[in-house]
Design a protein around this nucleic acid. Structure first.
Length: 607
RNA sequence: GCGCUUGUAGCUCAAUUGGACAGAGCAUCUGACUACGGAUCAGAAGGUUCGGGGUUCGAAUCCCUGCAAGCGCGCCA
């Protein structure tokens, strides 16, 4: 944490904060009060009449200094006022003993200079990660159907979190785990076959509408092939003999395996298209079957057993996860000799730590950010899973397994998000691929567009359950807050166009006199820009992309207010005011572009 | 029963992780420049932050307790 704060010392605000902290520290020394600098709290008050910065030192340290908080505060305020602190206009004492520091607008002008110089690329970019590598896995819905709402939420969240990591100096690899082995895939294949040849779908199979659709799609593909065989079942068998198989248990009829393999690809195509329509993409799609074929499961099991982390009981092989904080031990191999899902999951998570694997995937492209790692024997610094609440019970066992395999406890992190309740016309929709009634993310995106959908997912904290009423969202699409933000961006582009056609020279990135920017609306807008670097840092640290959403709305609001009250290009605006305002406008555009990019939402030139 | 998460304006959600008078958007009501884009702006109204204790200068936030909701607790995945 201390390290993180230090690494962030780039922004104007954090430099100002450091300066003020030093000034307070020095002033206290002169007053004969010794305070550890870590006990000097500085924050930006919610109300502007409480100053630009405010400190609670007097409150926190009054007892140790044997002085009344307000007395100490007053002496500190007086001492600071004459200390010649840069930008410091005046000080006062308020409330129970806060020392409020009022700065001259000049400090905010420095902020705008930094925004202009940094631009979209460098403003609010941090080096917290210093090239560390982070793996993020999210969505990973079973490839047995289209993406449901939860997948949409984790997609938007995971992708934005990855963007935050990259902006903060981490290299990332984003992964989708394709669960193409096991019972669900088998059932999926059986359901497809049943739909094709008119048999009843198994009770515990997949009954959704899409299964019928896809079955007829597959039937169509088979029919369009050569041959005059009318019997669909026979065609399936023929096709199965030649084509690929899903790697599900041997002994399964070949046509089921064939249909399953086809179905998985069909589902994945659907999932991928849907996510990409929301601007979510993955660097790597890891198939479980490929992992199994590589022998990773045997390898991991061997290592765990050699390390005495396993035991046998009732003909099954158990992993002693309870020794690492889990409620109880977990089965790796069932008494019938088959592995549970847990073993491949361990193998996968172990593999994600591998730097070799990361390098291999990096060569295939898709890995983003600059990895500074050079130690070939090292491993990834952080492996993150984004999970729905229905999987939270699984976290302790994976965490335990990772520790057993030698990965530091803090290098595996599970982010558990609350599930999404999807409604249509005020009624809750059951989210189940098996019962058939569900609303797909695709449907949501089609109805309201990708920006509204993505913004909606990122509007609130991942900790709170989310209810999205697809009809309500459609009906109110025009009033959606995303347009409020995008409109601000488009307005700015419009100002630039107007300036050009009026023959006004564009403002250079530096050198513009910003001193005319002293009005309330101008200062409010500058303050909004000022906090972006810390918003980015906090959003990353708290794994909370929705903080960016909140900020981007605040910035847009500040801009609309400014735009309404402060004419820029009117003929009666003096050139120096005009240029300063143009500068502020461009700075706002930079801020909006950064925020919207982190959210994966388009920043349009016109609407 | 145990564990995780949550409970804030009529509705949907924020709240700088312990700071000052709890803020936005919808919805309701009232206004604004014959417009550098009105998809905008200003104002009004709306609160016992689920209840009850506690900690301290200070609590929506931390502790205890009760209530309510979601999820999890398999040799299923």
């Amino acid at each position: 944490m201390a390290l993180a704060a230090k690494a962030c010392r780039g922004s104007v605000a954090s430099m100002m904060e450091a300066e003020l902290t030093r000034a307070i520290s020095g002033a206290l020394e002169r007053l004969g009060v010794h305070v550890d600098s870590s006990r000097i709290g500085l924050e930006r008050p919610a109300r502007t009449d409480h100053g630009d910065w405010s400190s609670n030192v007097a409150l926190v340290n009054a007892k140790a200094a044997r002085q009344a908080p307000r007395d100490l505060a007053q002496r500190l305020a007086d001492e600071l006022a004459t200390a010649g602190v840069r930008h410091l206009d005046r000080t006062d004492v308020a409330g129970p003993g806060f020392v409020n520091l009022h700065l001259a607008p000049s400090w905010l002008h420095e902020v705008l200079e930094a925004v202009m110089e940094g631009g979209t690329e460098r403003y609010a970019r941090h080096d917290l990660g210093a090239g560390q590598i982070v793996s993020l896995e999210f969505v990973s819905a079973n490839p047995t159907g289209p993406l449901h709402a939860g997948g949409g939420r984790w997609g938007a969240f995971g992708d934005s979190l990855a963007r935050l990591f990259r902006r903060c100096g981490y290299a990332t690899i984003t992964e989708y785990y394709v669960n193409d082995l096991g019972a669900q895939v088998l059932l999926f294949g059986q359901s497809l076959v049943a739909r094709m040849i008119g048999d009843p779908v198994p009770d515990d199979g997949y009954h959704g509408e899409y299964v019928a659709d896809w079955a007829s799609e597959l039937a169509g593909e088979l029919r369009s092939g050569a041959g005059d065989e009318d019997d669909l079942a026979q065609r399936l068998r023929d096709a199965a003999r030649e084509a690929g198989h899903a790697p599900i248990p041997v002994g399964t009829p070949p046509e089921v395996r064939f249909a399953a393999a086809w179905g998985i690809e069909r589902a994945l195509r659907d999932v991928r298209e849907t996510l990409e329509s929301m601007n979510v993409s993955f660097a790597h799609w890891q198939h479980e079957s490929e992992l199994a074929a590589s022998g990773a499961m045997d390898d991991v099991f061997g290592r765990l057993r050699a390390d005495n982390k396993t035991r046998s009981e009732a003909d099954a092989e158990w992993l002693c996860t309870s020794e690492y904080g889990d409620d109880k031990d977990r089965v790796l191999y069932r008494s019938n000799g088959e592995p549970t899902y847990f073993l491949p999951d361990i193998a996968y998570h172990d593999a994600k730590f591998s730097l070799d694997r990361f390098r291999r995937l990096q060569q295939h492209g898709g890995v983003a950010g600059d990895a500074a790692h050079s130690d070939p024997s090292g491993e990834l610094d952080l492996v993150i899973d984004v999970l729905g609440a229905d999987h939270h019970g699984y976290v302790p066992r994976i965490s335990a397994a990772m520790q057993m395999l030698g990965h530091p406890a803090e290098s595996y992190e599970a982010i558990v998000g609350q599930n999404v309740t999807l409604m249509r016309d005020g009624k809750v929709i059951e989210l189940s691929k098996r019962t058939g009634t569900m609303v797909e993310v695709r449907e949501l995106v089609d109805a309201v567009g990708p920006d509204v959908a993505r913004f909606a997912f990122l509007l609130q904290s991942i900790d709170s359950r989310q209810t999205i009423d697809i009809d309500l969202l459609s009906a109110q699409a025009a009033e959606n807050p995303v347009f409020y933000v995008q409109y601000a961006h488009a307005r700015i582009a419009s100002v630039a166009r107007r300036a050009e056609s009026d023959g006004v020279a564009p403002v250079p990135p530096r050198g513009t006199d910003l001193s005319p920017l002293t009005g309330d609306r101008e200062l409010a807008l500058l303050r909004a820009l000022e906090v972006l670097p810390s918003v980015v840092e906090i959003a990353l640290r708290e794994r909370a992309p929705h903080k960016v959403t909140t900020w981007v709305r605040d910035l847009a609001a500040a801009f609309h207010g400014f735009y309404h009250d402060c004419p820029i290009l009117h003929s009666d605006v003096p050139p120096e005011v005009r240029d300063a305002r143009l500068c502020l406008t461009e700075g706002t555009r930079i801020g909006l572009a950064i925020g919207l990019d982190l959210l994966g939402v388009d920043a349009p030139e016109a609407m």
